[in-house]
Design a binder for these strands. Structure first.
Length: 218
DNA sequence: TCCGAGATTGGCT
DNA sequence: GCCAATCTCGGAT
């Protein structure tokens, strides 16, 4: 193996504009330290959400609430919200303190500890798993948080640029990036068509709905 | 194998 | 009442 240049993403990365952060996060390596174990995953699909009324698809476009208050913090803070009672979605705040934006991590490609992710998702042992089950581990925003145990209680409000438990690294990967409309934002009026969803072209962990959406968009 | 419809679920507004 | 999702199941391909 040749020597790789690996650099942890710093605060300045997350202070950039939200669309740039969403694009640049693709191919970066999310690392979690849990119970002394290291979990690594490559980010393969993201969506940008803008604040201050510019983007009606964003939870926080009309201002902040107790749920969304962390959006007001500086880029790099972790925003997790629960939806439909049982699911959680993982976002990273962008821009400097007082400016509002966030990037939703929609899908990742797991790089290690597949067996543990499998148990977290299906609550059954890892015996003769099907290919479909492996892809299904992390190919959606709530699947990803379930597989890695990214709960609101444990991670909400952490700064991903200043945490020993969770951080993102640049391994020099330069993926082939595509964009499309976001999904499930039909209520968002003109923001419905904003091309703020980014994904790695051809990666099998990109959620299926985005591939459908791509056909509609182009 | 793929796709769409329907049920689910509880915090938030 | 709304919702940035997922799962299951049935019918089509």
């Amino acid at each position: 193996m040749g020597k790789r240049r690996v650099a942890r993403l710093k605060k300045s990365f997350f202070l950039q504009d939200t669309v740039t952060v969403a694009r640049e996060l693709l191919g970066k390596i999310l690392t979690l330290i849990k119970d002394g174990k290291e979990y690594r995953a490559m980010i393969v699909e993201t969506e940008a959400y803008l604040g201050n009324g510019a983007d009606k698809a964003a939870h926080f476009s009309k201002g902040l609430t107790n749920r969304t208050r962390i959006i007001n913090e500086s880029g790099g803070h972790i925003y997790i919200y629960s939806i439909y009672g049982v699911y959680q979605c993982f976002n990273i705040v962008t821009l400097k303190e007082g400016e509002h934006g966030a990037v939703l991590i929609r899908a990742v490609e797991p790089l290690n500890r597949i067996e543990e992710l499998y148990f977290n998702r299906y609550k059954k042992p890892f015996e003769s798993p099907e290919k479909r089950e492996i892809i299904n581990l992390t190919n959606g925003p709530a699947k990803f948080t379930m597989a890695y145990g990214l709960t609101k209680g444990e991670y909400y409000g952490l700064d991903i640029t200043d945490s020993e438990r969770i951080f993102i690294e640049d391994h020099g990967i330069e993926p082939d990036i595509s964009c499309s409309r976001r999904v499930n934002v039909d209520y968002a009026e003109e923001a419905i068509d904003f091309p703020y969803r980014f994904y790695i072209e051809g990666n099998e962990y990109v959620s299926r709905v985005s591939q459908l959406d791509k056909k509609n968009y182009f």
